[in-house]
Design a protein around this nucleic acid. Structure first.
Lengths: 218, 218
DNA sequence: ATGAACATGTTGTTCAACAATTTTGTTATG
DNA sequence: CATAACAAAATTGTTGAACAACATGTTCAT
């Protein structure tokens, strides 16, 4: 059951990464149809290879595949956001609560906070968002569970898709930099339980903000 | 973000289901290499379609893909079993604890218990195992979370792969039929918290049994 | 207008071929 | 005899074209 290792990125995976960025970056609008022929021509790959790419991204939840009709950029819904935050609470909160402050992933958390702090001065709010996500991915990495880590990676990709749809990146990301720093500090001080409680507050507040921003769209 | 719907099963998905059964059923040995040409000929599909099948099953965790080397049936390890049970505890226990006893999935749990009871008289221990898994899938369905449900489906596929490797199906499945019934009864009696505690015991004991059976192999 | 028949474009699947890579087999060398 | 270097064979990676199956849009008859 494939525990690790990943030596050579294939063409399909490279293209998948590129398409993923285009989607989460907003270059491709949610709901948009992706014609196999057109996209294959644009990316200069064959239709067959593109289909493999589509399968990958569909499993990740950022593309939607309707049989005999084609693939579309997934459309975030209120329900999906609620579900995503529910999963986040379920996974992140216990992950942090049972963390050992000396774990290697703590360094990842630290550098994520540092990067977010840097980027907010440019300001590059999309970059701040990425750094914040990296912070939370690091929290899940505290569990050393390959399955949780992989699952959470998907969840984050979906959430970034939703973020791309909203239009107040500063409001969505800025307030959480100091909170992340605070959580990290509490963990490093040897109080994972307290850090975990703070994380739960964080998630509830962030969820509310995202839902409000989402509601402003219609 | 693809919340539901699945109207037409494509050829690739049908074949995937067939291969999945062959793997979890033990017809294909863990570690075995699956030659694209040979398998495509056996299943009477083209190599391209088979590749899509492989991608599907690789994402599910029951096949392993090594670039430029081919795909292999995944080999369950001690570490993977530990990880799987950890994920199960994390998801199933809270799912049951917060359950509403009138939820539709409770009926699924009930019929799963009934089916397991039926099959143990034949006896069909592989069938009993499937029914037990269905019971736990139903528990996760109590959450109404599409993402958790899909994730858990993968986890179960992996676990069944591990079960197929072991050789004492009666020992692995029989003791848990009455426990499932008991958990269900507690839930129907309006005590999800109590049911959840029993489930936690269940999982710990089951994990121990599986690990012991696994250790007997070497 | 309503609905049936048709026209069109897209996806689903197959086939055949070639490039890139790994594995295997052979030979040469210490 | 062991091993390193190299050649040959087999396998995967990727492509392009073709056709069938399906979905949608249009035309036509009523």
């Amino acid at each position: 059951m494939a525990e690790a290792r990943e030596p050579a990125p294939s063409l399909a995976e490279e293209i998948a990464a590129r398409l993923r960025d285009q989607v989460t970056g907003g270059a491709l609008v949610p709901g948009q149809r992706l014609s196999e022929a057109r996209v294959a021509a644009e990316l200069d790959i064959s239709r067959n290879t593109l289909r493999e790419v589509f399968r990958l991204l569909t499993r990740e939840g950022i593309l939607r595949h309707e049989p005999n009709r084609g693939v579309f950029v997934a459309v975030p819904s209120m329900a999906s956001i609620l579900d995503i935050y529910r999963v986040r609470r379920l996974i992140e909160v216990p992950a942090l609560a049972q963390a050992w402050p000396g774990h290697a992933a703590v360094a990842r958390m630290r550098s994520a906070v540092a990067r977010a702090t840097e980027l907010q001065r440019i300001p590059d709010w999309r970059g701040v968002g990425s750094a914040n996500m990296e912070f939370h991915a690091a929290i899940v990495a505290l569990t050393d569970s390959p399955r949780l880590i992989q699952f959470f990676t998907q969840i984050i990709a979906e959430l970034r898709l939703a973020f791309g749809l909203l239009d107040s990146p500063e409001l969505l990301h800025r307030p959480y930099i100091p909170r992340n720093a605070e959580i990290l500090g509490r963990l490093e001080a040897g109080d994972p339980a307290g850090a975990s409680r703070m994380l739960e507050d964080y998630l509830n507040q962030s969820e509310r903000a995202v839902l409000e921003a989402f509601a402003r769209l219609g």
